[in-house]
């Protein structure tokens, strides 16, 4: 009862505040959400710690969370982790942007032209299921051991989800709107930029979010084999020296970084482009 009263009061107070910025009530709600999100993760860490205590595994097989935390601090303060993260993200950006730049126009062409569809669809349906890692041997043969090979792997990984979603998006653009364009004599570039592209944008944004995610996974695989910097390289190198704590730090950085990018950048971006026009993928 007492707790109830306090909540009511704080809600009333926040309602009285002009402007509607973050109020005390929403702050508590947010904190609660964060705690609920973190609780299971804390649980895993605790179990992990107990496992290291009760097992007699050596530290190179399973370092305790404390050892990993120390290594994390060491790699952070030396700047190495940040350097590798920047190297990885840089490669990701280049590969993904090239993938985007090729996939969207090609997706547009396949989605709007029957001939392009006939030409490209069979090729796409065979190459699309091949995982990026399977391309590594060819990539190394063609581009050598180095950033170009890794970039090629990322490009392929990001390319297909963006392509397939663009095709789907272009095909779901309302026929009625295309007719409106014809009646009002839209020139070709208006047909593209005022109807087809905005109409398929929800799909393109979703494809891009997926593509960047696949690219991130492919990047790590590529760096393990064909790079001399980056998070994937760090993990693979650490394994050679049995620095298992560094392996785990690298893995956690990969997972954590992308979870943050997804939650703070990609999903809000997707939601906002779609909500802004009252569109949804289901209705589009």
């Amino acid at each position: 009862m007492k707790a109830n009263n306090t909540t009511t009061r704080s809600v009333v107070r926040s309602a009285n505040q002009a402007g509607g910025g973050p109020t005390l009530a929403t702050f508590w709600l947010r904190l609660q959400n964060i705690l609920i999100f973190l609780a299971p993760i804390a649980g895993v860490v605790v179990i992990w710690h107990i496992a290291t205590l009760v097992s007699d595994w050596p530290v190179y097989l399973l370092p305790s969370p404390l050892v990993v935390a120390k290594t994390l601090w060491k790699l952070l303060s030396s700047g190495l982790l940040l350097e590798y993260l920047v190297a990885s993200v840089g490669r990701l950006m280049v590969g993904c942007f090239v993938g985007f730049a090729v996939a969207v126009p090609l997706g547009y062409a396949i989605g709007t032209s029957r001939i392009m569809d006939r030409i490209f669809s069979p090729v796409v349906s065979i190459t699309q299921p091949i995982p990026g890692i399977a391309w590594i041997p060819l990539a190394i043969l063609w581009f050598g051991l180095g950033p170009a090979a890794v970039g090629f792997i990322i490009f392929l990984a990001a390319f297909f989800p963006i392509l397939l979603n663009t095709v789907a998006g272009v095909r779901t653009v309302s026929r009625d709107l295309v007719r409106v364009g014809h009646v009002f004599h839209f020139p070709r570039q208006m047909m593209v930029f005022d109807i087809i592209l905005p109409g398929s944008l929800p799909f393109i944004v979703t494809g891009t979010r997926l593509g960047f995610g696949y690219g991130w996974r492919a990047l790590v695989a590529g760096e393990m084999i064909a790079a001399s910097s980056g998070l994937g390289y760090m993990i693979f190198e650490a394994r050679n020296y049995l620095k298992t704590d560094e392996v785990i730090v690298g893995m956690l950085t990969i997972g954590l970084f992308w979870a943050v990018v997804e939650r703070l950048v990609l999903r809000p971006l997707e939601r906002r482009t779609i909500e802004r026009w009252g569109m949804s993928r289901a209705a589009a």
């Binding site: 009625d176 709107l177 007719r179 009646v183 005022d194 026009w277």
Partner: peptide, 13 residues
């Protein structure tokens, strides 16, 4: 010649 369509003919964006 201009045309007024049935519903759903405005550009949502």
């Amino acid at each position: 010649v201009a045309m007024v369509f049935q519903e759903h003919s405005l550009f949502p964006w």
